[in-house]
């Protein structure tokens, strides 16, 4: 019976959006799930879950996306939220240094709690800065950034989830 369950769910993967508040996690969630965007900020207080299917190299993958309330540090997120996660997208706001000042501590914490899990670090709101400024932030951060996105324009959002999905089938 357990084997049958595993087979049925082989192509569904839980992915978590996390990071500080106001960085655009819910906007990335809405852009990916519904291809919508709103300028109005509405705080998330717990978790929202939805899903969307992607086709990558002929393989269909169901992304079960968890949009978690922003916390200043990751150790404030309930541990249960991470159960069964296959990947984490750690989002920060390129325009607010306070959202990436704890990046090393947060990633260390997530790596320790969820060893062997894929963590992607994403700088969001790239539409608000020029390329030179984004490059400087990346260099100053001293931490590898996987992608720069804009939930507002949609830039790199599809790419982000395709990158994650590709990791699941490789």
């Amino acid at each position: 019976m357990r084997l049958q369950i595993l087979i049925n769910f082989m192509l569904s993967r839980k992915v978590i959006l996390t990071g500080s508040f106001g960085v655009g996690k819910t906007s990335l969630f809405s852009r990916f799930i519904n291809n919508t965007f709103s300028d109005r900020y509405i705080t998330t207080i717990g978790v929202k879950v939805d899903k969307k299917s992607l086709e990558i190299d002929g393989q269909e993958i169901s992304i079960l996306l968890w949009d978690i309330a922003g916390e200043v540090t990751q150790n404030k997120v309930p541990n249960s939220y991470f159960l069964g996660a296959s990947a984490i997208i750690y989002v920060f706001d390129l325009t607010r240094p306070s959202t990436y000042k704890n990046i090393k501590l947060d990633i260390d914490y997530l790596n320790k709690m969820l060893p062997n899990i894929t963590i992607l670090i994403v700088g969001n709101k790239k539409d608000l800065l020029d390329q030179e400024k984004i490059k400087t932030i990346g260099e100053d951060l001293g931490y590898p950034i996987d992608l720069y996105t804009s939930a507002k324009t949609g830039e790199n959002v599809e790419n982000l989830f395709e990158t994650i999905g590709r990791g699941f089938i490789e």
């Binding site: 369950i5 207080i45 978790v47 879950v49």
Partner: peptide, 24 residues
């Protein structure tokens, strides 16, 4: 869907796992 398999396979008998503040 996203937690079911893990709950069935890893939850210990007698233990309760809580997920607060789920918005639906």
């Amino acid at each position: 869907e996203s937690v079911f398999v893990d709950l069935i396979q890893t939850l210990e008998t007698g233990r309760i796992i809580q997920f607060p503040k789920v918005e639906t």
